[in-house]
């Protein structure tokens, strides 16, 4: 499984360059999240994230390689541990879309989710179900998401400081809104992470996203870098 995941990550990364449109070189999402506990049952997660689209436009003066900020966002989650394998969360996201283009779109998103661990040790397997209400420029969209994920340490059965881990996930997404036809989406991602010390993780993933599968399919490849700090 480890070899398969490694090859999948390589394949996705290799497609970053060739799979995008002529102008887009790659889409980069970067996030930093801080996780902190309140007692034994409650934990909170605050994160900041940006998406930058890197373009290479061919002009009369030659190649123009530049990054355009697509959005910036802040997320806040509160999570309650129902039992060792089951956690319920509520969250809020504020996103400002294309802030540098002068046509700011403001997005508010409320999330309710349940996540449960099928296997808590070694090769860890987990499911996550999410309900989202997304309001962008006054328009409400309901989103229903289910994700299955696997992660495991690359050295031993436990993830210790100074060790790498691999992860893969697939998420199915259904969007329902009054303003458009309902749409399906799928997101597959694979990657690698590294645990610094006891509290800090850095994760690199390559993701293949297919949106509006039943309407006009939009396939995109993403590079995602995430920093997790557990206080």
């Amino acid at each position: 499984m480890r070899r398969l995941l490694f090859l999948l990550t390589l394949w996705l990364t290799a497609n970053m360059v060739s799979g995008q449109s002529e102008e887009t070189v790659f889409v980069w999402e970067a996030s930093t999240a801080v996780n902190y506990k309140l007692g034994k049952s409650w934990s909170f997660n605050t994160s900041l994230a940006t998406r930058t689209i890197w373009l290479n436009e061919q002009t009369t003066q030659g190649d123009d390689f530049r990054g355009e900020l697509n959005f910036g966002e802040i997320n806040q989650f509160a999570t309650y541990r129902i039992n060792p394998r089951l956690k319920a969360s509520i969250g809020y996201k504020y996103r400002i879309v294309e802030p540098t283009e002068g046509r700011n779109q403001h997005e508010h998103r409320v999330t309710q989710q349940v996540a449960w661990l099928h296997r808590p040790e070694g090769v860890r397997m987990a499911s996550r179900g999410r309900l989202e209400q997304r309001i962008r420029n006054g328009r409400l969209t309901h989103r229903f998401r289910y994700r299955f994920s696997v992660d495991f340490p690359l050295s031993g059965q436990t993830l210790d400081a100074g060790e790498f881990y691999m992860l893969a996930s697939n998420e199915i997404l259904y969007e329902s809104t009054r303003f458009n036809r309902n749409a399906w989406g799928n997101r597959f991602s694979a990657g690698v992470g590294y645990l610094f010390g006891l509290v800090t993780k850095l994760q690199f993933t390559a993701a293949y996203r297919s949106d509006n599968i039943n309407l006009w399919t939009l396939n995109r490849l993403f590079v995602e870098t995430s920093l997790f700090i557990n206080l």
Partner: peptide
């Protein structure tokens, strides 16, 4: 000490 679940829950 259980493994952190932040990458499963939020990412």
């Amino acid at each position: 000490v259980d493994r952190q679940t932040d990458n499963i829950l939020y990412q």
